[in-house]
Each structure stands twice: as structure tokens, then as C-alpha cells.
Amino acid sequence: MTSQTRTAITTGDGVRIVYRFDGDENKPVLLLSNSIGTDLHMWDGQVSALTEHFRLLRYDARGHGASDVPSGPYSLDRLGRDVVELLDALGLQRVHVLGLSLGGIVAQWLGIHVPERVDRLVLSNTAAYLGPANQWDRPIAELLEASDMQVTAERFLHNWFPARMLQGDDEVVEGFRRTLLATQREGVAGSWAAVRDYDLRRTATLIHNPTLVVAGEHDTVTSADHGKELAATVPGARFTVLPTVHMANVEAQAEFVDAVVAFLTEQS
């Protein structure tokens, strides 16, 4: 396996987006898109298994990780175009896309707006709509007024992982906690604004790329019903439910990777 250290592009609006490759450059590229409050390391546990089949392209979304943190609300259109500009800069015409949570929303945007850049889509623990919009205004305001990420970090962790993983000093959970605490509040708030303002319930019908929707049976952020509704909206989409909370890639790593690989490598 070959790997590459982090490097970056600069988008048309002047934001530096950090990315990295892992795996054999002769294999098909699989782009991984992250949830709010994480960076490209949210996929660390899956890299070894996935690089047996793919060259992975991971990136820190604007507002997260080592990428720039512009102020103000972000839009889904801007988050999607960040990915398009990344693919353009790297000379990648067509890739598989796997997105989880907000990453799954960005993946939907790609399937709707630039389907020619996408081979197959995996939409994990995500939804076509997370309204009503006004429910997001107070959390955004409270976060921007807070002195740090402490309260928001603990809320995220309890929404992401089962109780058994939150008890004690689970090494994986601690890694996510460190990332959350290091994330700038403006990045999370800006991304929440993108979630507040998006609604793909109608336009998701325009996705015609082969699509797998993965849901968590116990997910309280994007419920199994959200996943089922999304799968019913995307023409021909497949649907699978794993016995997890929100971070299905972490909690049920083997089952998650098996489902993703089986779908992405299936012969047409």
C-alpha cells in the first residue's frame, strides 16, 4: 500500500481544504466525506480494509481539522462545490463516494448536481431533510456564545456512540473527543447552518447513480426511518440497517466495511 501525507488545495473563495490519499494509485478512488465535528481521521479504523480494494481520498471539510475555518454560515452548495474543486484539482473525473451524516448529505448533493463525477454512492446515517429549520437556530447561537466546545462535544459523543462505548476510557471514543474539543466552534456552527437550510426530499429523486443507504437501528440523529425514506426516494437505492447508533463505521466496523465493499465492487 502506498500513502501520502496531508496536502491541500485552495478553493475559488480562498479556503484551504486539506486532503490525503491512502492506498494503491492503480485502484478505483473512493472519496470519504465526514460528519460534523470530525476530521478525516474518523475513517482511520476502516483504512486498512478499504485500501484492499480502493485508493482512498479523505479530506477535512471546511471548518474542520486542518482545513480553514471561514466565519459565517456555510451552505450545502458550497460544501458540495468544495468537493468538486478538490476532484478538479486532483484530475479525478469520476469516483465512488461514501459519506456519513453531513458527509452523506454532501454525497447526495454530488449525485444530484454532478452525477457524471460519481460512480456509486454510499449514503450512511444520513437523511434528505432534518427539519424544521428553526430547531437549529438556538443550538447555533448557544454554541457561538459558548467559551469552548466542551458541552457540544459531550452531546455529540452521546448521540454518536452506545452507552457501552462511553463507559470508561474507550480509546476510539477518546480520539473523537479530542477532535471535537480541538474543532473551532465557527466550523461546527457554520456546518449546522448548512444542515438547517437544506432540503433534498424532492431533488434526491434526481440521483440515478447506483446507491446504497446505510442506517443505524438505534441512531437518534438520523434515524432508521430517515434512511428508509431516503432509500425510497432515490430511484433503485438499496437499504440496509446495522445494529448501531450514529457512527456505524466505528461501532459495527466489520459489517459496515463488508456492506460497502460488496456494494461498490459488485459487477453491473
Score class of each variant (00 low, 15 high):
V47L: 06
R164P: 09
L166T: 10
G111I: 14
P28Q: 11
D39M: 01
N134C: 05
V114A: 02
Q167A: 15
E145K: 15
S3L: 09
A153D: 15
T10R: 14
H226W: 09
T233M: 00
P70C: 13
T233S: 05
Q267G: 06
S33I: 03
A133V: 12
I105V: 14
D199T: 13
I207V: 09
G65Y: 02
W160S: 09
W136Q: 01
T51C: 06
E171Q: 07
G23L: 07
R185G: 03
G111V: 15
V221K: 07
A215D: 10
A146L: 12
R81A: 05
T222I: 12
Q46I: 05
V257P: 01
Q167W: 12
P162N: 11
Q108M: 11
L100P: 01
A49E: 07
G72E: 12
A248N: 10
H218R: 11
D137M: 00
R177W: 08
A248R: 01
M42C: 11
L144N: 08
T152H: 06
Y59P: 04
I36H: 08
V84E: 13
S71W: 00
D225T: 11
D119H: 14
D77C: 13
E116P: 01
M1S: 08
S3C: 08
G14K: 03
R117M: 11
V260T: 06
